[in-house]
């Protein structure tokens, strides 16, 4: 029987929704236990949130001053130590998990399954390669199985659990060669791009940071999160944390509206799991229309304000 340890992702005392998605993925193995590991300077609040997730057996906390920030060089030896006795160690396929989990796997001397998107059995999983243009089925060798879970492939596990919370003391020396300096977070009152049920994205066609206002305005009308293509980010219209795609965020909103985005495969990789895709583009031949559920050809600078107005 499988015993699964999930590394919690959190920021400013808030548990990230990616953790509950890992719980759903873990549940597919019908495991004997799913435990969540919270590494933090002050873990109580985060642990309480984790304990609420249905299906979780125990929440294990490791409180150390060094855990105030998520530095992988500091966290990895603790996770590797805590992994003893578990058959699987999961983390989310977010920048947090992508940074941390391979370091854990190397310390454990095992390979990692990146972007786990489907569980076949306890050893066998599906994951995307070549920017999602092929799906490969892989089996892990004997030993602990370390994986990052592709968050867009699994819904968050429901609330309503009542896991116990236990403090864990791990005897590990931590390095001082890596130090946190600062985090410049894009401040936004809009729904989080990775969990929003509706997302409006703009591309290079917007032409400037100033023109991007019409995207924000439409998004606000819909209560949507805002994303962008790489071209829009590179051109400086919007910050990097808004990039959707192979090398940005992989998202699965119910509604995705792509405006002035051509539909390069690297962008499409990020939205394949969206419920309904709407595309607005002046080029009727744009590849985005090949995958859009609803396509509208025309100039975005007239159509977007018109759409906003039509939404009443």
């Amino acid at each position: 029987m499988s015993k699964i340890l999930i590394v919690a992702e959190h920021l400013n005392g808030q548990l990230n929704a990616s953790t509950a998605k890992c719980v759903t993925a873990a549940g597919k193995l019908s495991p004997e236990a799913i435990d969540i590991l919270v590494l933090a300077a002050d873990a109580a609040g985060i642990a309480a949130q984790a304990a609420q997730i249905a299906g979780v057996s125990r929440v294990l906390t490791v409180e150390r001053a060094e855990n105030a920030q998520s530095l992988s060089a500091v966290l990895a030896p603790q996770v590797a130590k805590a992994a003893a006795g578990y058959s699987h160690v999961f983390g989310p396929s977010t920048t947090f998990g992508k940074d941390l989990m391979p370091r854990v796997a190397a310390l454990l001397g095992v390979p990692q399954v990146s972007d786990l998107m489907e569980v076949v059995d306890a050893q066998t999983f599906k994951r995307p390669v070549y920017a999602g243009n092929a799906i490969v089925t892989v089996s892990a060798p004997a030993g602990a199985i370390v994986a990052t879970v592709r968050t867009a492939s699994f819904p968050a596990a429901a609330e309503g659990g009542g896991a116990s919370v236990e403090a864990l003391s791990l005897d590990v020396a931590l390095p001082t060669h890596t130090r946190f300096v600062e985090l410049k977070a894009g401040k936004s009152d809009r729904p989080d791009l990775q969990t929003a049920s509706r997302v409006v994205s703009g591309g290079r066609a917007l032409g400037s940071a100033d023109s991007f206002r019409i995207i924000y305005s439409l998004a606000d009308k819909l209560g949507a999160g805002v994303g962008a293509s790489r071209a829009a980010v590179d051109a400086g219209y919007v910050p990097n944390d808004m990039q959707v795609g192979q090398t940005g965020k992989i998202i699965a909103p119910e509604l995705y509206i792509a405006i002035g985005i051509s539909g390069a495969i690297q962008h499409l990789t990020g939205i394949k799991d969206a419920g309904t895709i709407v595309a607005i583009n002046k080029d009727a031949e744009a590849p985005i229309f090949e995958i859009a559920d609803f396509g509208l050809v025309g100039d975005l600078f007239t159509l977007v304000p018109e759409l906003e107005a039509a939404l009443g």
Partner: peptide
């Protein structure tokens, strides 16, 4: 990073 730009030393 997902939250924005992090600087480390």
């Amino acid at each position: 990073v997902d939250a924005g730009l992090e600087t480390i030393e």
